[in-house]
Every structure is written in C-alpha cells, then in structure tokens.
Design a protein around this nucleic acid. Sequence first.
RNA 1: CGGGGUGUGGCGCAGUUGGUAGCGCGCCGCGUUUGGGACGCGGAGGCCGUCCGUUCAAGUCGGAUCACCCCGACCA
Length: 427
Amino acid sequence: MLTMKRSELFTKTFKTVSAEETSRNAQLLLRAGYIHKELAGVYTYLPLGLKVLEKIKNIIRTEMNAIGGQEMLMSTLQNKELWEATDRWSDSKVDIWFKTELAAGGQLGLAPTHEEPVTAIMTEYIASYKDLPRYVYQFQTKFRNELRAKSGIMRTREFVMKDMYSFSKNQEEHDEFYEKSIKAYHKVYEQIGIGDITYKTFASGGIFSKYSHEFQTLCAAGEDIVYVNQDKSLVINEEVFDDETLAEFGAKKTDFSPKKAAEVGNIFSLGFKYSKPLKLEYANKDDAKQTVYMGCYGIGVSRLMGVVAEIFSDEKGLIWPENLAPFQVYLLGIGKTDKEAEELYETLTKQGVEVLFDDRADVRVGEKMADAELLGMPYRVVVSEKSLAAGKVELKRRAGDEAPLLLTKDALFAKLESAVRNFGNQS
RNA sequence: CGGGGUGUGGCGCAGUUGGUAGCGCGCCGCGUUUGGGACGCGGAGGCCGUCCGUUCAAGUCGGAUCACCCCGACCA
C-alpha cells in the first residue's frame, strides 16, 4: 500500500475528542484516525497508525540486523514453570502479570518480557563455544498489568516492543556487543528524527549490575526526570542522581539541570542472572562448562510512536518526520481538476512516491486542507485551475511556515525525490 | 492502591425543585454551493454504564458495582 485514495482508505477524522483525553498524542492520533481506543491502556492501530508502526519497526530492524541480530517471534503465552525457575512467577515478585487458566487445567501467563523463554530456547541451540555469540530479537506484543495506564500510547497495558537478547561467551565479548548496540540505538533515534534530543542515560541496573543504560528523549509528556550536564555528555536518571553516582563520574551536582523525558530504550547487561538458573551453558575448547553471559536490549515501539506524536505536532495536528509518515504526500485537487489531479496521482504512484490522494468528491476544500494538516504528511500538493493555467502545481511542507511553492511538475518530482525513499514496504 | 473527577444517539455535550430526553457535529435524501471544516428543506438514530432501592412517577434521590480520565504511589 504505497499509495492510496482517501475515499478508499479505512479511516476517518474527527473534530472533537473527549475532554477527558488530555494527552496530546492520544488526542491527535484519535482525531486523525490513526488509533482506536479499546480500553484504558489498550489501543488498536488502524491502517494509518499501523503504517507508522511498521516504519519505525523497519528502521529498528535494519539497525538490529546490521549488528548481527536475527529476527524471530516468540510466543505470548508463557510456561509458568520457566518463570518459577527464576522466581519471577509470583505476583509478589513481578506484580504486572496477566495470568489466565488453561481449559484443561493449569496456569499460563501473558508475557511481560522474554528473558526466560529465550534463555530456555537457547539451551537447545547453544552447547559449544562454536555456537556463540548469538543475537536474536523480535517485535512482540507485551502485556503488563499496570496499575495505571496513562499518557495515551506512552504507557499502556498492551504494547509493541522490540526486544533483543545477546548470548556471549564472556563479559568481554558481551561488552563489545553492548557498545555496538548503543551505536545502533543512536542511529535508530537519529533516523526517527529525535536524535538530538535523545540521550543515553545512566539508570538503576537492579541487583545484578550497578547501572543499566536508558535512552531518554526530552519530552514534556515524559514520566521521567533526567539530569543533563552542561555539555550534554553525561545524563543521569533521577533515581540514581545522588552523591555516590556523582562521585563515580567526578561530577558536581550544580553542573546538571533536570529535564522531563520519556524512556524510549533500555539496555541491560544481564550477566548470568537468567543463564544460571536456567542452566544455559556451553563447553569451551577444554570442554570446561561455562555459563553464557547475557544482555537484553529493548525499545518500546508503540511508545516511540507516541513520543514522536508529542514532539512533532502543533495545534493543527500531526507533523510526521519523513521517515515515519504513512505517506509522503497529501494530494488534493481544487475546482474542476479531477482529471489532472488523478493523472498526477498516477504519475507519483509510478515514481514510487507514497501519496495519499484526497479524491473525495463531496468534500469541500477547507475540510481537505484541515485534514491534510491533522494527518500530518510531510508534503501537501494542491492541483488547482489557477496553477494549472500557469502549468504548475503547488507544494507545501507541513513542517515550518514556509509559503507554498508553485512548481512545474518536473520541479515537483525533483523536490520529492528525497521523499521517494521508502522505509515501509510492508503489505 | 490512596485522592479527585466523569459515564446521556456514532462523536462532543446540556438536562432546573423527580413528571418519561435535547443541542452541536457526523449520518441519509433533495437542492443550491465549492482556494480553508458552506447553506436551505426533509429524515434516521438513545431502556440516560450496570444492578438494587425510595417513589404514583427516577437521567435526576439513596446504596452498591463496573468503566474511563487526572494527581500521587508503583514501574525487571
């Protein structure tokens, strides 16, 4: 679905949204028909929303593959025994489980994360140092029974996550990959358009490593507070922003200022936390049994979409970065230009430009313009009798406030050339 | 889970001292319009979140319950 006619696209825009819905990302995505709210913290992704999600996934997929990741897809339903082995089944230990009963008897859980199953799988596939290292990842729907869902699609009970797991012979091998993953993450955020406001931060690492790293995007709607030092080279999460941490980095409290931020990634050195209880071992060259050293690397894909909607939007609607927009161009005709607009649509389609053609005959110009702004495609192309008489069409960027350009079709094609790149070639 | 708020046609809302529900948007039909969410005329569409109670009578009063929103707590 590279191009589409608006009259055929399954979506609808709304002028109003419930006064209860205060989160900007939810308001805009609901009004623009990208998502549908099912329950608190549970959303359906409609065709437009799914396209954005898929584009984010493709950016991540490319970078994960580039550092050796191999994509797979694990199950949602979880084996209780596996999680008992690591003492993470009990609700007193992990309080966000959704659990359910098997008709034949017995309990299952809906996966909140996948360390246990992936480690168990690997015991079947890793036996020798020759089997290492291995890096696998997936895009999977996670379930977390949050006490309180909030902020639209930024904190939900059901969400899409990219989770990668690394299996290394030892810490040195792991550290090398961990550094690569950091670079890959930065590349992902850059392509999404939030590279300059997304920082790798020091966060609490739990019991098994002192720190983990998070990737935090500065965003007023974020739930977290990060402390950014003056030259932005060091960013520390609030929960570990104390004298001890500062001493470790030789930094002074006064060099930092607090900022609201949203967590868009989190990477952990897991060490032997899961490989030990689940007995994931390999034989080295001397046939001595070694425990596999693990790491995990998450990105909340659907949350990321929410963060982007928060950041790239204005009072009129969404403003998608080119790499994420469902379509590059919102095309519409004014006056008696049906034939010419249709022709331009076909030409752009042939050229591989992702275009949404608002061909609705019974809709007035104002509504089409308003929709173009609400839906937030990077470019708007208008075909009118006036401009056609001059042999031209009108091009306007959604972002910024530049006046529309009057261009010949050839000039238009040249301008849109950069937009031809297609990140979302799914379905 | 503590505190606060909200549930009424598809969506957004109003509904007075209790008397059997209304507005805007959207939708359907006809006509006029057509560079910024047009207008006229005619229509369709609701057991007022759910249950129990008070009453001759409940959207409205009482109780319970469910759902949703916000603040806080929580968040490998």
